[in-house]
Design a protein around this nucleic acid. Structure first.
Lengths: 147, 147
DNA sequence: TATATTTAAGTTGTGTGCAATTTAATTTTA
DNA sequence: TAAAATTAAATTGCACACAACTTAAATATA
């Protein structure tokens, strides 16, 4: 057994599947003019508006080098705006615009469509998510850390 | 239950775990001066040398826009070289240099180290791989297609 | 066999992803 | 309280990832 064989490593299927998933999101996100990472930022904001850039970065594991241009793009699209925390001028606080709030309605359709596109039923979805959550815990990627 | 919540989607854990895995590869690959995608190309070549660029792209699901500069970097590192198929001058055939063959010995250490870094024992490794293989099949990402 | 079509790489442009550095604001501490 | 350390964004530079397009070679077909 060759340990270097692609088929004998975890890394490659993870890499390939992850790329494939974001590829299948692309046509669903196109009507909203969002890329997959931009959509993730919007998900964070729809869950909690008026949030520091720092916190978005912690949730998504992204640094300012990635987020700064991404947020600028979302501003250009008219979905968010930047404010500063008056108590700490270093902090950039991101808020949804009205338009950014409105497209949430369209985005609500996406999770169901994605499961369809991925060909997963409810049971499979839950099974995969459990395994991923478990692995995320093991890699210390969980927010809650109750694992 | 909010369907748009990060924690209720498959996409995000996949995205986060995939990034985390390649992050954990980075220090292991640094001594070889390889990035993670470059390492994947080397894995393909160590499995089968003298292979068309096209075929590498099919294995890794990457197009020439990604592979051309990546291969140029591997040439710069002295690990591979380009030749043309004399029977079809369109085809670029990639071959390992002596140096590219030699570093395979160092790379042999990596799979074991990665499982250690990810904190997975043999049993868990197999369990995760089965699930990923299953999902890859379902997404039509498998070469064999026997699923 | 000349023309059209297809195919393989390469090129260009946009958008991440991340390391390393810079800038400005805040906090620590000497 | 002035200087040092820390913190949050922004900037710079490099390397993917991929869509769209170009170029050159091979194949198909009229």
């Amino acid at each position: 057994m060759n340990p270097l064989s692609l088929s004998n490593q975890l890394c490659f299927p993870f890499y390939a599947i992850s790329k494939e998933i974001s590829k299948r999101y692309r046509p669903l996100l196109a009507p909203l003019n969002l890329t997959y990472p931009q959509y993730l930022v919007m998900l964070v904001l729809w869950e909690q508006d008026f949030i520091p850039l720092k916190t978005i970065g912690e949730r998504l594991q992204l640094d300012s080098g990635t987020l700064t241009p991404l947020i600028n793009k979302l501003i250009e699209l008219g979905y968010v705006k930047k404010t500063r925390n008056p108590d700490d001028e270093r902090q950039l606080v991101i808020t949804l615009t009205e338009k950014g709030g409105t497209i949430k309605e369209d985005a609500m359709e996406i999770p169901a469509k994605i499961n369809e596109v991925l060909g997963l039923d409810e049971e499979e979805f839950i099974r995969y998510r459990q395994l991923l959550d478990e692995l995320a815990c093991r890699l210390n990627l969980s927010a809650g850390d109750d694992c």
